[in-house]
Nucleic acid binder design. Structure first.
Lengths: 149, 149
DNA sequence: CTGCTTGCTTGAACGATTCCAGAAAACGTG
DNA sequence: CACGTTTTCTGGAATCGTTCAAGCAAGCAG
């Protein structure tokens, strides 16, 4: 029901940036919106569940195009495949579990704004400060300490 | 001449963590120390210039082992192969050029300490805050604006 | 110096991503 | 609503960076 509303919104956003509205793109957007931090692989899997056969290439193309047009945001924790989320420009960061790879959003902390720009940029024109917090998620921490108690 | 001194130091560090002292490892350490932020590929290339034929596998093994023993530090800007630097625990961060991929060290800014740990860790045990600054390096900025003047 | 353990070599496998050429679909126009 | 143009999708294969596996070689303790 609100699927229709949502699809329309995505379609509008696509047109707004001059992109054609296609089933694969809409499905990719729906899937990434419903479940952020998915890899291209998982996006493909879910898109297919939703609209049937789609080539892997179409998925990659859609993800790339949508990212280039700032509708999606791509990131890539070291050692992981690329992951995607809807670009809502809230500038949040990511908490990544070293054990299971799960990614959790961390809202931007206003008080720490200063570190968005380093003191000495070495002449670089900096446009983004990406912060990744590495650690162990609750589930993995529990699993890892099971034997010691 | 200080090559000998330096090699000795590396050898000592290797022994200190219970690793055998081998030519490939010493060469990898020398190369990464001399030129941080190298990819495995480039490390291999330079190691070979220094000590002759070494298998790619030996390079990867050395890099992995040394990283695991905290003598090297591995990082991986999105879209790039993994890169290595000597782990001196100064907790500096990286400035990456979107155009040419060049990486420059950014010293840790004391005043911005607060953002090292997010407010809400969602139950994660956080052990590292990795900051990557994305932008355009002076050279690429110049090259990109040549036509407009 | 000898043997055990660790590290190296070679060669192949692997996953994620991209490249390519042709078929199909989306959109603006008549 | 049919048409042509342009963009997108399909299918298949290639590429890159990295890892796996088995046997040989070398480091180091005794």
């Amino acid at each position: 029901m609100d699927t229709a509303v949502r699809a329309l919104t995505w379609a509008e956003r696509l047109r707004a940036v001059g992109l054609r509205v296609t089933q694969p793109r809409l499905a990719v957007l729906a899937v990434v919106h419903a479940d952020p931090h998915l890899s291209a692989d998982l996006v493909a899997e879910r898109v297919r569940k939703q609209i049937g056969a789609v080539s892997t290439q179409a998925i990659y193309d859609a993800l790339k195009t949508l990212t280039e047009h700032d509708i999606l945001r791509r990131f890539e924790p070291a050692g992981s495949a690329m992951r995607f989320e809807v670009a809502n420009h809230d500038n949040h960061h990511h908490l990544v579990c070293r054990t299971c790879g799960t990614v959790t959003d961390v809202p931007w902390v206003v008080g720490s704004m200063p570190c968005a720009v380093p003191d000495d940029t070495h002449g670089y024109r900096v446009d983004e400060a990406e912060v990744t917090y590495w650690g162990t998620c609750p589930a993995c921490a529990r699993a890892g300490t099971v034997t010691s108690s």
